[in-house]
Each structure stands twice: as C-alpha cells, then as structure tokens.
C-alpha cells in the first residue's frame, strides 16, 4: 500500500491544563474524503489546527505524504499542500475579497502575476464569491465570510483540504450547491477532511466518517454505520449532558 497523504500519530494537544486531544490516530489515503463529527468542544477544530500547524502538538506526530511536519510552521505546511478554512472566519478585513484569495494563490500556491490572479478568480468562482470580488472582506456578512474561507483555502492549491463547519446556516439549496462543489473537488483528486454538524450534507460527500470525543477518535468507518453506532449515540448524549 502506498504512503497515506496524512498520518496523525498518537497526537496530543493541550492548552495548559486542558488536554483537548489525548491520543488521536488517523490515517487518510490520497483522494479520500473523511468526515469528522463529535460533540461541541470535543477538539475537532483543534485537530485541524494541529494538522495545519496553527496549534503545536504536545506529543505525537503529523506526517504529510510520509514527511514528518510536526515541527513545521503553518505557512510551510500550506506550501506543502495543506489548505484550511477557519470555523470562525478570519478575513483580511481591509483587503478586498479578491486580494484575500490572491494571498493564498501567491504564497500558498506559489504562483505569480497573471497565473496567481487567474487562480484566485477561479477559487472565488468555485466558492460563489466572484461577484463580490471587489468588496472589502470586512464588509461581508457571516455566510460570505465562510465562503471566503473556502475560496482562500482553494486558492492555495491544496492537496489536503481541511474544512471546518462551512455548511452551517445555509439554505437547503445552498447546501446542495456546496455539496456539489466539494464533490467536484474530491473528484479532481483533492483529499478532504471535513468537520460538519450538518450531517446530511456531510454524508453525501465523505467516504468515511470518524467520531471524535474525549480526546480520541472513538468510531471510524462507513458513514452510515458510524452514525448508527451505539458509541456515537452515547457520545452525543454524553456531550449534551455534560
């Protein structure tokens, strides 16, 4: 078997005394789409941050295509092909929507000049933001900001795309559109890790679902089987009760 694109090996992340991730094991082959579910505060976003280099691992390792990137900066990991969206959008408020994407194209994808501009426009088009290209990003409402998160991540030309709750708040039709977009990304060969509470959208895309709770991955497998599993029911009930 060839080397998985992403390997998360005994990963732990702590914020002071708070041990959010204790021992996460995850291996994602190239081209696969994996969904992540889990109760609020389980550490899903923290896992994406540890993979993208925004948070440091306190133990364990992250490997990209076999290469250990545990000590590598977020910028370097982005250039190696990791694109991510932030759950709470982080737009460059004083730049235009187009320029936000251009940052990713120039720095993440390493493109220049007309190539970078074209690539940014494509990313905006894919995320459905092309019409707002000249707006200051700070003026976008929440949904627009979430789309911008997707557009910027795409502009970096990712091989591994990390999505964090991009479907929340969408109408039925918009969610359909988003599913189609993510599916087409998957078909083009992008490996996807997608955290989503809107399970209905998620299961239309992912090949595999993992459930994260209490610092570990509790269930891992076929999306429908995972959702039907006793562990997931228990974890969610436990999560709400806590």
């Amino acid at each position: 078997m060839s080397t998985p694109l992403l390997e998360v090996d005994h990963l732990a992340v702590s914020f002071g005394e708070l041990h959010v991730l204790e021992d996460v094991e995850l291996s994602v082959p190239r081209g696969q789409a994996v969904g992540i579910v889990g109760p609020n505060g389980a550490g899903k976003s923290t896992l994406l941050s540890a993979i993208s280099g925004v948070e440091r691992a306190s133990a364990g390792a992250v490997r990209l295509a076999g290469r250990d990137v545990t000590r590598t900066s977020a910028a370097e990991r982005c250039r190696l092909g990791v694109g991510r969206s932030f759950q709470i959008p982080r737009p460059f408020a004083d730049l235009t929507v187009f320029e936000n994407a251009l940052v990713g194209a120039e720095r993440g994808a390493g493109l220049r000049g007309a190539h970078a501009r074209e690539h940014s426009l494509r990313a905006l088009e894919t995320a459905g933001l092309l019409g707002l290209a000249n707006k200051p990003a700070g003026s976008l409402p929440l949904l627009g900001r979430k789309r911008l998160e997707l557009a910027r991540a795409l502009a970096t030309g990712p091989e591994l795309l990390l999505l964090d709750e991009i479907a929340g708040g969408l109408t039925e039709a918009e969610a359909e559109e988003l599913v189609a977009t993510v599916l087409s990304l998957k078909e083009s060969g992008v490996t996807i890790l997608w955290i989503e509470h809107v399970v209905k959208a998620l299961v239309q895309v992912v090949d595999r679902l993992v459930c994260l709770a209490y610092g570990r991955i509790r269930v891992d497998g076929d999306p429908h089987e995972v959702l039907a599993s006793d562990e997931v029911a228990e974890v969610y009930l436990g999560g709400t009760a806590a």
Binding site: G53, V54, A75, C78, R90, G104, R107, A109, A155, T156
Partner: peptide, 8 residues
C-alpha cells in the same frame, strides 16, 4: 494566523 495558514 490566517496569513500563516495561507502560506505567508
């Protein structure tokens, strides 16, 4: 933080 995640 966002800048870093976009490769800056």
């Amino acid at each position: 933080t966002a800048a870093g995640s976009l490769g800056v």
